[in-house]
Simulated assay, not measured.
Amino acid sequence: MDNTTYIALSRIDVLTRALDVTANNLANANTDGYKATRQLFSEYLVHQNDVHTPAGEKDETYTQDKATYQDHLQGALRQTGNPTDFAINGEGYFTVRTTQGIRLTRNGQFHRRLDGTVVDGSGNPILDNNGRNLVLQQQDDVLSVASDGTISTENGMVGTIGLVTVDNLQTLVPEGNYLLRPTARTHAVARPEIRQGMLESSNVNPVSETTKLVEIQRDYDLTFQLLQTESTRNMNAIDKITAEPMS
Results as ranks from 00 to 15, higher is better:
residue 5 T to H: 05
residue 12 I to H: 05
residue 17 R to A: 14
residue 17 R to C: 05
residue 22 T to Y: 15
residue 33 G to H: 10
residue 42 S to E: 12
residue 49 N to D: 11
residue 59 D to E: 10
residue 67 A to C: 09
residue 69 Y to K: 06
residue 69 Y to H: 07
residue 74 Q to T: 07
residue 75 G to A: 11
residue 78 R to L: 06
residue 80 T to C: 02
residue 86 F to G: 00
residue 97 R to W: 00
residue 100 Q to L: 08
residue 109 Q to I: 04
residue 122 S to N: 10
residue 128 D to E: 01
residue 130 N to Y: 08
residue 138 Q to D: 14
residue 141 D to R: 05
residue 144 S to G: 00
residue 146 A to V: 09
residue 148 D to C: 03
residue 153 T to S: 12
residue 154 E to F: 06
residue 158 V to L: 02
residue 158 V to A: 01
residue 160 T to I: 04
residue 160 T to P: 09
residue 163 L to W: 09
residue 167 D to L: 04
residue 167 D to E: 13
residue 168 N to S: 09
residue 168 N to Q: 01
residue 170 Q to I: 02
residue 171 T to F: 03
residue 173 V to R: 11
residue 181 R to C: 02
residue 189 V to Q: 01
residue 190 A to C: 00
residue 192 P to M: 00
residue 197 G to M: 11
residue 199 L to A: 08
residue 200 E to C: 02
residue 203 N to K: 04
residue 206 P to G: 09
residue 207 V to C: 04
residue 215 E to A: 09
residue 219 D to M: 08
residue 221 D to G: 05
residue 224 F to Q: 08
residue 226 L to T: 06
residue 228 Q to K: 15
residue 231 S to H: 14
residue 231 S to G: 14
residue 234 N to A: 10
residue 239 D to V: 07
residue 241 I to F: 06
residue 243 A to E: 13
residue 243 A to D: 15
residue 243 A to W: 05
residue 245 P to Y: 13
residue 246 M to E: 15
